[in-house]
């Protein structure tokens, strides 16, 4: 695997960005992860992870329009890139291969 290593939290966030399909932004991701995993996550951790993903060119971001909510502050929307999808499918392949190899225990 010549790609950068993705941490578990990063993978989780990247998957979330992927399924939200363009509507992903800090607070929404934060809420989704909390509800889905029950974990209490720091918003700053979400942002830092998003920033790192962006640096690795796995997501891109753009500033959305202003709304009346959140005190008129604009949102930064994240979308997964081609490389992002690629790396997710790679990870998935590796995992599935591994799952295949495990003797049926369940």
């Amino acid at each position: 695997m010549n790609r950068d290593y993705l941490g578990e939290f990063e993978e989780l966030i990247l998957l979330t960005v992927a399924f939200m399909d363009g509507a992903a932004y800090g607070a929404a991701i934060h809420q989704d992860i909390r509800q889905r995993t029950g974990r209490s996550v720091q918003l700053s951790a979400v942002h830092i992870a998003l920033y790192r993903l962006e640096e690795k060119k796995l997501v891109t971001s753009e500033i959305g329009g202003a709304t009346a909510q959140r005190g008129g502050r604009r949102k930064r929307f994240f979308t997964i890139t081609h490389e992002g999808r690629h790396i997710l499918s790679e990870i998935r392949q590796v995992r599935e291969q591994l799952w295949q190899l495990i003797p049926k225990m369940i």
Binding site: Y25, G26, Q31, L43, R70, R73, K75
Partner: peptide, 13 residues
């Protein structure tokens, strides 16, 4: 700006 926006949105929730 966007991070503070996120904070405010979550705060409401």
């Amino acid at each position: 700006e966007d991070m503070l926006g996120d904070m405010h949105e979550l705060y409401e929730i």
